[in-house]
Amino acid sequence: MLRFAFGAVMFTHGVPKALRTSHGSMADPMGGSINLIQNVMGLPFAPQLAFLVMLLETIGAIMLALGLWARPVAFLIALQMVGISYALGPTWPWIDRGIEFPVLMGFLALYIAVRGSGRFSMDQKLRLSI
């Protein structure tokens, strides 16, 4: 249930990027991701990296919810959460976009990456040892 719920939450962050629709207080989530990657983190190829983030948060989230290749997908999400936490800086406000949520989600993803997808997963049904 935890894996499914986590995948569903991640999916809600990916769909607005994919559809280029507003999400909460963000008018343009994909533009926000590009800005964060390019201007805050200073990384090159920001639009391409933002596209990969969108794929991870949509297709990867569905795979995580279903338990299909859950370990590698969860590991990639954990890496994404490390990047988000780094970009947001060492602030821990309970409001106004602190890093407590990406840190929590990062540890949840790391837990799934280490423990695997569980008994009720596509990995188990297909006998994948990923």
Rank of each mutant, 00 (worst) to 15 (best):
R3W: 04
R3F: 00
R3Y: 06
R3Q: 03
F4M: 15
F4Q: 11
A5Q: 08
A5V: 13
F6R: 03
A8Q: 05
V9C: 02
M10R: 02
M10P: 00
F11H: 00
F11D: 03
T12R: 02
T12H: 03
G14A: 00
V15K: 04
P16Q: 06
K17M: 10
K17L: 03
K17I: 00
A18K: 04
L19R: 14
L19G: 09
R20I: 02
R20Y: 06
T21K: 13
S22D: 07
S22K: 13
S25D: 12
A27M: 09
A27E: 14
S33T: 14
S33P: 07
I34K: 07
I34P: 05
I37C: 05
Q38M: 06
N39E: 13
V40P: 03
V40H: 07
G42Q: 10
G42E: 08
L43K: 06
L43W: 13
F45M: 14
F45A: 15
A46C: 05
P47Y: 10
Q48S: 11
L49E: 03
A50T: 04
A50Q: 01
A50C: 06
L52T: 09
V53I: 12
V53L: 08
L55I: 12
L55S: 03
L55D: 07
E57A: 05
I59P: 02
G60H: 09
G60S: 01
A61I: 10
M63G: 12
A65V: 10
A65F: 04
L66A: 14
L66H: 02
G67L: 09
G67D: 11
L68R: 04
L68I: 01
V73E: 10
A74Q: 00
F75A: 15
L76T: 05
I77R: 02
I77F: 12
A78V: 05
L79T: 01
L79D: 00
Q80T: 06
Q80G: 01
Q80C: 05
M81I: 02
M81A: 03
M81F: 07
V82F: 11
V82Q: 05
I84M: 07
I84C: 01
Y86S: 09
Y86V: 15
P90N: 14
P90M: 14
P90V: 13
P90L: 13
T91D: 14
W92E: 04
W92N: 00
P93C: 06
W94D: 08
D96F: 11
D96L: 11
D96S: 12
R97N: 15
G98K: 04
E100G: 04
F101Y: 14
P102G: 11
V103T: 07
L104E: 07
L104T: 15
M105G: 04
G106E: 01
F107Q: 07
F107M: 14
L108M: 14
L108N: 01
Y111C: 03
I112R: 02
I112M: 13
I112F: 13
A113Q: 09
V114Y: 08
R115A: 15
G116E: 09
S117R: 01
S117C: 06
G118H: 04
R119F: 08
F120I: 11
F120S: 11
S121L: 06
S121C: 00
M122V: 15
D123A: 00
D123P: 05
Q124A: 15
L126C: 02
R127D: 14
S129R: 13
I130T: 13
